[in-house]
Design a protein around this nucleic acid. Sequence first.
DNA 1: TTCTGTGAACAGATTCACAGCA
DNA 2: TGCTGTGAATCTGTTCACAGAA
Lengths: 213, 213
Amino acid sequence: MTGMTRAIPPATVARLPAYRQALIDADAAGQRILPSAELAAAVGGNPDQVRKDLSFLATRGIRGVGYEVAPLVDELSRILGLTEERNVVLVGAGNLGRALAAYDGFTPRGFRLVAVLDVDAAVVGSEVGGIVVTHLDGLAEVVRRLEVAVGVVAVPAHAAQGVVDLLVAAGLDAVLNFAPVHVRAPEHVAVRSVDLSTELQMLSFHRTRGSLV
Amino acid sequence: MTGMTRAIPPATVARLPAYRQALIDADAAGQRILPSAELAAAVGGNPDQVRKDLSFLATRGIRGVGYEVAPLVDELSRILGLTEERNVVLVGAGNLGRALAAYDGFTPRGFRLVAVLDVDAAVVGSEVGGIVVTHLDGLAEVVRRLEVAVGVVAVPAHAAQGVVDLLVAAGLDAVLNFAPVHVRAPEHVAVRSVDLSTELQMLSFHRTRGSLV
DNA sequence: TTCTGTGAACAGATTCACAGCA
DNA sequence: TGCTGTGAATCTGTTCACAGAA
């Protein structure tokens, strides 16, 4: 029963993972039905927005009651491509890369780190997060053999574009970039960047507001 | 010469760190003047948007030529509160916390990690990134003594809200949260969240687009 | 009665188009 | 002539308001 869904706006997509997690938490707490107000409270939004967002999905709520948790989680999982594990390859085994590999923030929700690559002979061969670091030269082969879906870039800024180019050449169409530079990629490749420094600077801006010397 | 600046829209603020970095890079490459088209290329935006964004600042470009790099970097630094070092405290010395401490993504641009705290007796006393981990109990004192400006939360999801409450109680008004949950804070406190899992799920969504089974 | 679903109103962000200065 | 600066137009996202099902 896959109802017709309108195209989902980006702003809504960005909130779907949070809804899904909140619903999973509610389910674990024994809640089988959740009204939009409670879902909103869990993710820090407002009920109007939750209902508008969910109106883009096929699953309908029950008027006067709320949303059935289980089917909604199912649909969100399907939409977000989490019905089966997705393999992730990490390039860069420096401080940040090793951290990401050790951090189990990938694992819990459908993503599995299957390879870590680097160019530095000093780290190739070492183990990190239970995975032996291999040389970047083997990227294309690794991506093909392990059916990798997402590439994570944790190399210095000056090396990031080159790595993205390699990932794209290897056939990947989803890249998560932690290097603090803008990286270019073809139209069909989805790139998201996470930059700690930018986040800190936005927080820092908050303090100066209204008191620009 | 602090010209009057209109209130800067959030969407613009989010791009200012990237402009600043691109300008610093250009300066290092010997560029003293940069037209909006080049700045746009560097950050992956378009020239119209760059000009609109910069129109909220006091620094004006030179028609027919471009923007003078040095004064623009200065103004951006001032607006983003980067004219002096800002001290950062990190709570959580698990995998992610240790990673963030070791990673020198803080340091390069005006932020200095000055303390790492945790509640786990197993890690308190150990050293990470050149800093000895102390017990969370000492938070308020550390924040006061070291004049901390920003708190970074790298604890498990279930502990995140409690830590944020402690940071707020200690007087901080800027929090960067890496735990994959929404955290509440009073109006005057700026909170930004970075969630790896959400980023991966948004990338994963990209693949399913158009082919919702 | 309660809470969903959604058009309508509103607000914010981006893009366009062009006037104006170096 | 080239590029900035900025209103106007457009597009996107959020909030409002209320009709309608359980």
